[in-house]
Design a protein around this nucleic acid. Sequence first.
RNA 1: GGGCGAGUGGCGGAAUUGGUAUACGCGCUAGUCUUAGGAACUAGUUCCGAAAGGAUUGGGGGUUCGAGUCCCCCCUCGCCCACCA
Length: 1143
Amino acid sequence: MSKYNPKKIEAKWQKHWLTKKVFVAKDNAKEEKKFVLVEFPYPSGTGLHMGHLRPYTAGDIISKYHKMNGKNVVYPIGWDAFGLPAENFAIKNKVHPEISTKKNVANAKKQLQGWGIGFDWSREINTTDPKYYKWTQKIFLEFLKAGLAYEKTGLINWCPVDKTGLANEEVIDGKCERCGAIVEKKELRQWYLKITDYAEKLLDGLKYLPEWPEAIKLQQENWIGKSEGAEISFEVRGASLEKKKIKVFTTRPDTIFGATYLVLAPEHPLISRLNIDNKKETEKYIEDTKNKSDIDRTAEGKEKTGIEIKGVKAINPANNEEIPIWIADYVLGSYGTGAIMAVPAHDERDFAFAKKFNLERKEVVIRLIGKPLPDLNRRDVVKAVIIKNGKILLVNEGYYTLPGGKYEENETDYDTVIREVEEETGYQNGTVKTYLGSSESIYPKDDINRARRVKAYAVEVDEDQKIEASDGHIKSSEWFPINEGIELIKKGGTKSEHEFILRAQNNTEELFGEEGILINSDKFSGLTSEDAKKKITEFVGGKLVTKYKLRDWVFSRQRYWGEPIPVIHCEKCGVVPVPDKDLPVVLPKVKNYEPTGTGESPLAGIEKWVNTKCPNCEVEKNKTKYLIFDFDGVLGDTYKQSLQARVDMGNSKDMEESHKNLHEYFSATPWHANELDEKGKKEYHNFGIGYAEAMTKLKYNLFDDFIKEINKIKNTKIAVVSSGYDLYSKGPLKKSKLKYTHFLAGNHHHSKVEKIKTICKAWKTDIKNVYYFTDTQADVYELENTLDKRKLVGCSWGYQGEEKLKEVLSENQILKKFTDIHKIFEPGIAKRETNTMPQWAGSSWYWLRYCDPKNTKEFADKKKLKYWTPVDLYFGGMEHTTLHLLYSRFWNQFLFDRGLVTTKEPYVKRVPHGIILGPDGEKMSKSRGNVINPDDIVKVYGVDTMRLYMAFLGPHGNQIAWNDKGIIGTRRFIERVFALTDFLSKDEPREVTTAINKAVKKVSEDIENSAFNTVVSALMICLNSIYENKKITKKSFEKFLQILAPLAPHITEELWNNIGNKKSIFLSKWPTVDEKFLIEDVSIAIQINGKAREVIMLPKDTSEDEMIEKAKSFGSISERLVGKEIIKTIAVKNRIVNFVVKE
RNA sequence: GGGCGAGUGGCGGAAUUGGUAUACGCGCUAGUCUUAGGAACUAGUUCCGAAAGGAUUGGGGGUUCGAGUCCCCCCUCGCCCACCA
């Protein structure tokens, strides 16, 4: 018998599996598929670690198990290789990330193969491969097309160490998820993915994932953070003419009568538009909060800060009361509407704020005890809690109660309570300290239901002020230790009042944050919160809305090593997607990888790459150009010539006078006067006809040089539009050499928009394709929403000149000289987007690529997707719950909505694993020096031992400290398996057959449940039984090897081969359980009064009656039962017999 | 502060879901073989007790013939979220 030598065996079989393609899956096979997925690794310089080994082994065990059960299993792997470590390594060592990545991948691949993991290497992918990220970019463009990717400049999370923006999900406790640096806020232009549009779908989808652990679903649910509430507008009154409103979001519209001030987030856009008296101070406050990190904002012991806006007030729409407006950073700009109505009596945060700044509190909801009634027959009382030296003063009214009573006429709360204290206890001139809250209860009295409302105050009294009973009012009062007092109240007629004592004792003022019954709320008083929410929202003109905590996903990073975002910024066309034929946008080589820190990626420095042609303009260049010219001032100086006409006709003596006269005329009679003349006919500038006629008789010149330039442009369709009377333009236009197809003049029948529409209809083109040439601002205003704004062109030689046009058009839209017109059709200056995608992009769809990794036409063939997806089993870490796992569900749902994938949800079952800690129970890290390298373990013990130990350590979901000590146990087990061939024999005792069958059953069940630790113990129990009996048949031995194979592939393959099997053990059929060998005698516990006394062996499924019979007659039991009366006997088949006796 | 989960020997952990608590492994103790053992094998190992027996699943209470498991209160630890109106 040779000695067990893991090294030799392992290398041999690892090579065999690869060359014989044992774990390569077939596409579109007839067999049932099983898609087992494990989160693909980042190939780091230090190699793969224990954190990878655990899920990879788990997935491997399950894959191999299913494969042996006849499924077509795919267990693919790849590399999530974009990311900061490679880039930081590049910065330090000037090695291109591509090179270091390649090296690391080769190394990690060797490790994985060395661990005997049966990945299907034919499907290997790499997110940094342009053939892969072509499709990442393509999917991004799908988002763009769908309007779910957008650019925005705003305050974002910024990591000062990594020098890049971060998504909300990447900030943990105010720190960078990657490097732990405290996250700052920075104003930057960023790309976003509109994940918020999918909030409801992502939430709803969780319902259809029954095989996901509840904890994960809950965590995603909380992260999405749905809440129902109302949006209500508050009118702003103050030193501003403009009427303004502040919209707030609240989940408690029922408390609106208690809203005593409004709070705006410092980022609120309205602040800059308000006329604020204390502008300097508010600006300083806003500036200060901007400079605070989220950690600072919350670390200050939650001490609230804020500043009141002076000179402006808001109106509470519920009661029309004027309330102050504050700015405070406890209101977040990014949630709800960025503004709240503060209800300090019922909200903890508002309460703290109001306390600090001494703002009014108004109680409008109180606790309801019992059911609400339509007619409350209410009786109000005030009570006093008087505590002194640890004792409380109670009044005896047959039962003990707090001093207090009814209001008398015109009394305030304070008057009543002080008076009642005096009358009932004799203590005079008490002082009211704090308000302790109120409650309302309903009790039947005299056959009707009465409501009783109690308000309670803490009152301080002075010994010296006590007087004796002078009249009959004073009742007997006594001091009790507080705890005793509470018990007395609980027993008394006013049970619920003991809570006031607790509050007084803790010196906590009342803050009733729950829902209850409304008071002090006009006609809504008496309603429950639930009813009031709807009714009040309606009353104040608000609307019920749903909000989510989920934020849009900041999707750009200012770093080098990531997928370039495939868009081009053209000065003319704006954001232009890179056309499909130009994908992928390959990451260019740079000299310097260092992030600039200014918010630009290192890519911004490569001018050659950044400056590009606009694909849109390139296409436009060859297309038909649709040009429409506004006649007046654009094609000819009609204004100047009409002045000349007046002079020529003798109405003015010179041009100057003519200008003055005309100016006066137009001032008195605007062009658009649109009045009817005496005959009821609509007439424009009657006088103009004369001039027009005169003008046409003049040598009326259009700008021939301009028309010459226009005619140089190839492939055009031209039309002319004029709002003026067509008489004075028709003639000269006819004479010109302009090749126009339409001329529409006179604004008395059509607006310009309608004229343009008419022309476009004739031209059969979209109105957005039209270039419109004008010389006035008014045209821009009139047309910018109908036409493509970027195609409006200003002609500076016209009526209004350059300056006015500059106010409404950009520099490159204004022609200064006639020849400038050609610039309009030259492609715009275009620059590539230099931001890259975040680390999470490539992994948001990678499992889809496994289905068809080499496809060059689409990211995966639909048929293949249909066969393989959804993923049946997904192993991964808990830390990705609100990152990768949420992101990839979002991408999948989006792709599904676009018809590009075949399932709504990507993963049927998620199996999370606990992390492996260092031997010291701390997270493994280089700095702690507690890192265990799996490869070191392999060297000493062999792979099979390590895999087995990994499985045996504990439940897959538990986090566990790696402990070297126990591994020797699994090594002993492996060696005992290796030596098992010594026991091979023609027959075996029944115990061995039973042990094998039991093991097959248990191992199968536990693998399906990912309970790997008990799989190992079941195998050990089985092995122990074989050793006890020292005999095993070849058939049983084979079965044992088969069920061990998924965990320890190398040794089993070796032994399987040694006993004469030619094909791989993983191509063999998983053993079945022979139930008849599971039938054996079972041990039955005999209990007396539930206490186990004896154990007897009985055949399986012995009837209850027989069990009792046997148990009763069993020696020691019958002795114990002598002389005792058996009251009851319980028997459970195959388990216990219990005699209940009278002691 | 909110949500989720857990607490069983010296240690990692089992327990068919209400039915013999402590399986399996490590460690430890004794023995066998050995020049020797930190190798291997055999036996033992929850605690108290020589034994008979008794106690025991973080603590306290409850339901039940019977509770690690179900219910209530409290304590401790871990994870996630955290001024989300």
